[in-house]
Write a protein that binds this DNA or RNA. Structure first.
Lengths: 182, 182
DNA sequence: TCAATTAAGCAACATATGTCGTATAGTCGT
DNA sequence: ACGACTATACGACATATGTTGCTTAATTGA
């Protein structure tokens, strides 16, 4: 299967649209491959040529959202003062907060959060390997550091979106930043 | 369904044993409810009286392992020196490392890691609310702090067990501790 | 000990899953 | 424009899922 084939790209695009469409209506766990295939007007067997299961499809459909989070995280200046969260981080939490209605289920789905965490770890690893690291941790391997922070970020977001969500996004961003910058 | 009924307890115990048995042979994702039911010598329909899906069953079957991790994490003295990880933390990573063959798949399964993270967050929240908190973060809500650290721990462990696992457990524990105690 | 309660067994169902082989039709290089 | 290639459609299959109604048997309380 050549993923660059225009036919394959079209099919994937239709599957993404169908899944996001369905996810906006019901919870992710109840969405079946058959349904997605039907709504996308794609043969069910064809779906398996692209994705092994719904969650992988969902993760791919959300690639944009995931990339957005990863990008925002990677953009944060590491030397911002402790009592003032950098703008990209605040924007990230605001983004999640605002888009919660649309894809809060992303963070509620274990598989999607796992995927997000992996993405973040990769992104931060690359950034850390490039030399841009929080100071004072030169005695820790970059990938462990990246895994640590990715886990922490995803953990805080997941805890927040699955909870009552009383804390305002900006406040949560500040708390996270304070934990990040002791 | 009364979970305290001795018949129910027996059934659950058999399901747990069967699942752990199967998980030791193959990866979790490929294990079906039908199989578990057959090996446990329990009617398939009965399984649904106890668990909605395999992952929930797995999470319950692993309650002991999860509790062990949560307990170890909660036991760590928070004032240990930065260049020497506390014994419970080292033991925890060694435990995971040693038991990897048996239930490394726990950390490879998104749903199980999510469950583990939730457990840890709860455990740490309770502990932090009780006053025992890492110093210097009084301006951060305890539950956010707990979510942050739980995510970080699970993130590092998941990154480690799903990777080549070259770093020795003790070294990883030290790295984690250094990140924890700046 | 006996009767009420209820977990588990059992059979059957509609639907979903994953995987075939084959046919159709869209894509690309010449 | 034509032929090789291949993604998709289609139908069919064995199996898995989730649920239901009914029966059997274990537990509990009087």
């Amino acid at each position: 299967m050549n993923p660059d084939d225009p036919r394959a790209q079209r099919t994937r695009a239709r599957l993404h649209a169908a899944l996001l469409d369905l996810a906006a209506e019901r919870e992710l766990g109840s969405i079946t491959i058959s349904e997605v295939a039907k709504r996308a007007e794609v043969n069910r067997a064809t779906v398996y040529l692209h994705y092994p299961d719904v969650d992988t499809l969902a993760a791919d459909a959300l690639e944009d959202a995931v990339a957005e989070v990863a990008r925002a995280a990677a953009l944060c200046p590491l030397d911002a003062p402790r009592d003032r969260a950098p703008e990209p981080l605040t924007a990230l939490f605001a983004h999640v907060s605002a888009g919660a209605a649309r894809y809060a289920w992303l963070l509620g789905s274990p598989r999607c959060t796992a995927r997000l965490r992996e993405r973040l770890t990769g992104e931060l690893s690359a950034r850390f390997a490039g030399g841009a690291r929080p100071p004072g941790f030169d005695d820790v391997p970059p990938d462990v550091h990246a895994a640590y922070l990715s886990g922490a970020l995803v953990g805080v977001i997941a805890h927040w979106v699955t909870g009552p969500r009383t804390t305002p996004a900006a406040e949560l961003a500040l708390s996270f930043w304070r934990l990040f910058r002791p």
